[in-house]
Amino acid sequence: MTLLDARGLAKTYPGERRIRALDDVSLSIAAGETLGLIGPSGCGKSTLARVLARLATPDAGSVRLDGLDWLALSGAGLRHARRRLQMVFQDPAAAFHPRATAGGAVADALRIHRLVPRRDRPEAAAALLRQVGLSPDLARRPVATLSGGQRQRVAIARAIAPRPRLLVLDEAVSALDASVRARVLDLLVRLQAELGLAYLFIGHDLAVVRAVSHRIAVMDAGQIIETGPAEALLSDPGSPLLRRLIAAVPALHRKDPPV
């Protein structure tokens, strides 16, 4: 079942260079599916994320999300509908209010969408922290005092709090150390199975995108140049860009496969 269907998205940034960040982009994501989106920096993948998250307005195009005409929503209607699509940002330090606490950030999401009565909120926030593998004892800690991996887990807890259907993960694991990243990827895969979430997984590291995506879309200069099932696409890349991206992944030549 198609959860998100975007057609003909276009966006040009004004200015002397008039960069076409999105040039007739169409994509669809099924419920419970991960679509990986890869491309060099400046290819427009972050603009696409911002347009889908209704943080930027496209010049043209349409988006249907969970049966809604997503781009036509505005005001209170949009705020209410936003619970269907949540986003996790690249820099977990910048994505929280400087004075936010872990529990407070999650509780805010619950409050806004009135999902649990006020007195049950701390308990529900603690449960969400537990769900992303954090101790509920961290609830009172300022997010700024947590490690990068813990912060990103809080960001994920905050994102799943309103029970969304789709998470846009914009380079969400790119700033993490490899060992932390591996555990956050495991968490994302587990949450997908538990909650039936769909992901738009944006990354620049093909090895990471390949590991978690059912399908992969390759983006260059504002256009999606090829899309396909992850394994099939990588074993038979159609574009020179994808071939270069594949070649740029250092091979580890392991003797024995990792556990």
């Binding site: 099924a30 419920a31 599916e33 991960t34 390949r210 590991a211 978690v212 059912h214 992944v249 091979a251």
Partner: peptide
């Protein structure tokens, strides 16, 4: 070894199936 195990390359096992 742990550092290497956490590193992904194109031969690493995928974490999801081919279909949702």
């Amino acid at each position: 070894r742990a550092l290497l195990a956490a590193q992904l390359d194109l031969a690493s096992p995928r974490l999801v199936g081919t279909r949702p």
